[in-house]
Design a protein around this nucleic acid. Structure first.
Length: 228
DNA sequence: GACCAGGCACATC
DNA sequence: GATGTGCATGGT
């Protein structure tokens, strides 16, 4: 897919969004997690699920001492599913998390750090080839667990940028990622914070039924914008 | 009680 | 290629 031609208006717009959200929230330190493995597991568990529910599941995993690749593979279906229950889709997610563990153990001795030594494009393809890991989950893992500068796109990203007129609401994942990576200079810290800020802004203000009062990005909408 | 949440795979046309 | 559906819990 051809990257879009860079334009200064889009770059300036995206830089302004970042400044505004950053001024409103300060550092998000997103993504939370004690280990790279925990972050990767969280990325799978948060698929179409509120983060508060993921936190409960991760706490369960820790309490049951299941938060390692070997422990997850050794656990019974019932033990793993019971721990994951609060995060929803728990049968699917138990399978997906296990598949990821198998891959990690087989190819990297269970070490996300060793996995991270692979070059970005190959590693991304490798993750996408795993059943249950789509583009957003792969990019969460790459950015936050592996330290690769990929811009994570999620529902909030698409919603915010389309409501602000930068893209069409139905833009695909890869075109949107290409747009962002073309107009925001690749930097690990910036990409991590930018996504964290989008998540926080999205949770607070950017629902399916929009509520823009108090949103740090509201002032960037034109005064006659339908959301205002 | 309805609606929603940071997806993904699969079936069907 | 586009569109629809199942998966499941917990908060508002």
């Amino acid at each position: 897919m051809n990257p879009p031609r860079p334009d200064r208006w889009t770059a300036a717009r995206l830089a302004d969004f970042y400044r505004r959200m950053s001024a409103h929230y300060g550092p998000t330190h997103w993504w939370p997690g004690d280990t790279h493995f925990e972050i990767a597991v969280g990325a799978i568990l948060t698929q179409n699920t509120a983060w508060t529910n993921v936190e409960k599941a991760i706490a369960n995993l820790k309490a049951a001492r299941l938060l390692s690749p070997k422990a997850m593979l050794a656990a019974s279906d019932d033990a793993l599913e019971t721990a994951l229950r609060p995060s929803g889709y728990f049968r699917q997610k138990a399978k997906r998390v296990r598949l990821f563990c198998e891959h990690l153990l087989k190819h990297y001795g269970g070490s996300p750090k060793r996995m991270s030594a692979r070059p970005l494009p190959e590693l991304r393809e490798e993750l996408l080839a795993l059943h249950g890991i789509g583009p957003e989950t792969a990019d969460d893992i790459l950015l936050y667990a592996c330290g690769k500068p990929v811009f994570v796109v999620d529902a909030y990203t698409r919603r915010i940028l389309s409501r602000h007129g930068l893209v069409e609401p139905n833009i695909g994942y890869e075109p949107l990622r290409a747009l962002l990576e073309t107009h925001v200079a690749p930097d690990l810290h910036t990409y991590r914070e930018y996504h964290g800020l989008i998540v926080w802004t999205g949770k607070d203000f950017c629902h399916t039924h929009p509520r823009c009062e108090g949103c740090p990005l509201a002032p960037t909408l034109r005064p006659d914008h339908p959301l205002l």
